[in-house]
Design a protein around this nucleic acid. Structure first.
Lengths: 191, 191
DNA sequence: TGGCTTTGTCATCAGCTGTTGACAAGCGAA
DNA sequence: TTCGCTTGTCAACAGCTGATGACAAAGCCA
């Protein structure tokens, strides 16, 4: 990425590590754990695959580090409560294909079904996504509301994936955004 | 499956083919396309892996056939419109880990992120799931409503997967079932 | 019986994967 | 300089995967 056509990489462990991590995040956000190879990531980062093992121990270690480094909950829940639903709805409908905002969520969804990544995904998605959301919503029905809200967000992302990018008219997109925001807000408000 | 500890398999092409197909459906509903090996399916069906290639051409061919053979839309949309949401909600909250009813949906979700299976998944999920649902809901906002309803159903399934089976108290499960039914019904009614 | 097709099995292949250990080069300290 | 540690590269490995083609046996027809 950073040094595409140079000779040997400049000796800078921290920068190299960061470079690998960023390449891994981008790859894992677009392809599943199984589909992404160490050689792919190493290539993106302009590094030898063996270096990944040295820095992160294994592919699973790198995956865990990549997911760790997202801090999804905070970025997603930033902002005031009243506009949460509209912000999310807008992001879902009009957000770019792989927005930085939802990168953690993307990685989780992409690799959810891979047996090897499953353990990491379960742990991290609870710690970084489900639990913060539950706390943020709060109240007696926080857990239930969080499941439903998360389901709607994740499901819409899945739905986009399946149909290959929404596939709706402009008017329908607007309608979707509005309805999504309302349903989401109702869920959060415990209606 | 059918003949676990016999010698050579009885010569019956149709039965053997069906046996392979069933084994494939069960496997693909529980594990992702990449995680399931031809040897696994062949083992379940009590058959040599080479036979799968003979009958289905390739792993992808078998996957397509397995997904083809589900007829998800019809089984899911059977029943009257008024109770649709409650039926689905109940199925989601209290349904078994891998219900026959939602097997097609399970297969789609499991392999959604595999690049190799993606093309098949996209095509089949539209034909067998999204389009029937859109038609069934009908009206001007059918497409939008279908996306949202599908998102909620798929998202809840994903959510269950991620947290490792709901992980809610009995009271919370009841609450979830009720709220899910209401939200789903509202979506379908275009509210 | 002898030949032919169908059905199923076996050994094996090429390709890819994550991982390893040996090696080269940079770089600061003595 | 020379030593020693760090940083990066290279070639290679074992393991697994989907797929292939040769082969065996069953069943059928004449």
């Amino acid at each position: 990425m950073a040094f595409p056509v140079c000779g040997p990489r400049p000796r800078n462990a921290a920068a190299t590590r960061a470079s690998i991590l960023e390449a891994a995040q981008n790859r894992f956000a677009r392809e599943s754990y199984d589909d992404v190879g160490m050689r792919d990531i190493a290539g993106d980062a302009g590094v030898d695959p063996a270096l990944i093992v040295r820095y992160f121990g294994s592919k699973e270690g790198l995956f865990r580090a990549a997911l760790d480094h997202c801090h999804e909950g905070s970025t997603l829940l930033d902002g005031d409560r009243e506009t949460f639903a509209t912000r999310i709805a807008h992001e879902i409908v009009y957000g770019t294909k792989s927005p930085k905002k939802m990168q953690g969520l993307q990685i989780i969804l992409r690799s959810m079904s891979s047996a090897r990544a499953m353990e990491v995904v379960q742990q991290q998605s609870c710690e970084q996504f489900m639990n913060p959301l539950t706390t943020w919503i709060g109240g007696d029905h926080g857990a239930v509301s969080a499941r439903m809200a998360a389901a709607l967000m994740m499901g819409m992302t899945v739905s986009k994936e399946i149909t290959g990018g929404l596939d709706l008219s402009e008017a329908e997109c607007r309608s979707l955004e509005q309805r999504l925001a309302r349903v989401l807000q109702d869920i959060i408000d415990g209606a």
